[in-house]
Write a protein that binds this DNA or RNA. Structure first.
Lengths: 218, 218
DNA sequence: CTGTTTCGGTACTATGGGGTACCTTATGAA
DNA sequence: TTCATAAGGTACCCCATAGTACCGAAACAG
């Protein structure tokens, strides 16, 4: 029986995301895997269900990814790449530009990190952490570190331009991040809190910006 | 063959912890379960291994907890009870006492939340969150909420005594917590970072205290 | 049109483990 | 001492599912 391929229907990323650049079959499998893994978690997700939803045979799935873990790893790597440093720090011409850059960074970071799909990836990596620490490493190296460097770069430029007080830029970045997120992420991961909407995110980012600037006057 | 029961050897909690008050058999099973679950995660942990380590038959295990999930739930509930509000806020007679109370709270919170055993419980609850959101709920209701109330109470008393500026105490607490933790917990859960030692914890708590007080001058 | 090669689908194997039936042993009553 | 009852241990059932072998079909070359 001929099979009509269903168009993928993931929340279309704002801009071409790494997942869009993959070969069609690979992409179909990853998209199906996201759905199944988000619903069931890693252990309860079956490769058969992923293959079925992707309208692909298990054979093809294994030809493409080699193992169940291979799917997870590809997914996490893609997702980490997806959260690449949300914006290169703009030229910082005055104190307001610094605040704007920090707020924009905060909005981008919060938007990414509270996205249900990204949260699911974190959840999966955390669940597998005892058996497979490499997944966390991938999120760290490809996700957190570049992001953090971008933030630190904003702070550094702000300091160089004399719009924010001295101090280790890394520490400033950490403070900003803490003020931004609080314990939100943990409780999102636990499924206790609801993700913030765009207005909440903006408020949080502005508040964290004000606070960190107030903490480090010139 | 007669079996000699081995004395349990969990890191003896500073003070009688809820787990110490349980009937011996129940406790032995829970202690064994902690070990197995920390090493393997929920899905890979087998009830047989838990029973064996507890020197108990599967039959007894099931008589006691009914199901594998029952063990996890009991464990998470116990752990949440364990992290009960680390200290009742002392009388706050001067600004220094407020700072001390906040720092003490911070040290206690960080010590608890970076403890490998507690982290394992969070990890398990997060892993099961898609299938079983109730576990997160337990951590929230029995762990976070009482803790957060204690923190807010410290802030409130500090405000009442005029040693810290006005503002929603909840928001102040959230700021303090964010400054305290940053994204530490997520990366501990992912197995990427190492838990901070006592000195790190003290430094963090003092820094968060200074920062939050600086943010809200009288 | 026929041979060959590559790809895909299905049906299978092997394994691990949750939960329980059933038998054995201890306990206590008469 | 014997019988009744409760507790415990072992062995088993059964299911889910990761990964693969094998076969059939399509595509392409000659």
């Amino acid at each position: 029986m001929p099979v009509t391929r269903k168009k993928s229907r993931l929340p279309a990323a704002k801009h071409p995301s790494p997942i869009d650049l993959l070969p069609a079959r690979r992409r179909a499998i990853l998209i199906a895997a996201v759905g199944v893994l988000m619903e069931k978690g890693y252990a309860r997700a079956s490769t058969l269900e992923i293959a079925t939803r992707a309208r692909v045979s298990k054979r093809e799935l294994y030809a493409e990814f080699g193992s169940k873990r291979g799917i997870l790893e590809a997914l996490i790597a893609t997702s980490a790449a997806d959260m690449q440093a949300p914006l290169a720090p703009a030229e910082i011409g005055d104190r307001h530009a610094l605040a704007a850059a920090l707020t924009a960074y905060g909005v981008a970071a919060l938007t990414t990190l509270t996205n249900p799909y990204v949260l699911a990836m974190y959840r999966l990596a955390i669940a597998e952490a005892p058996a497979d620490p490499e997944l966390g490493e991938i999120l760290d190296v490809k996700g957190r570190q570049p992001n953090r460097r971008a933030l630190v770069e904003i702070v550094r430029r702000g300091q160089a331009a004399g719009f924010v007080g001295a101090g280790e830029p890394e520490r400033l970045g950490q403070e900003f991040f803490g003020l931004l997120m609080g314990d939100l992420m943990v409780w999102l991961l636990l499924g206790v809190s609801e993700p913030p909407n765009a207005a909440d995110i903006k408020t949080r980012a502005e508040h964290a910006t004000q606070a960190v600037l107030a903490l480090h006057p010139i």
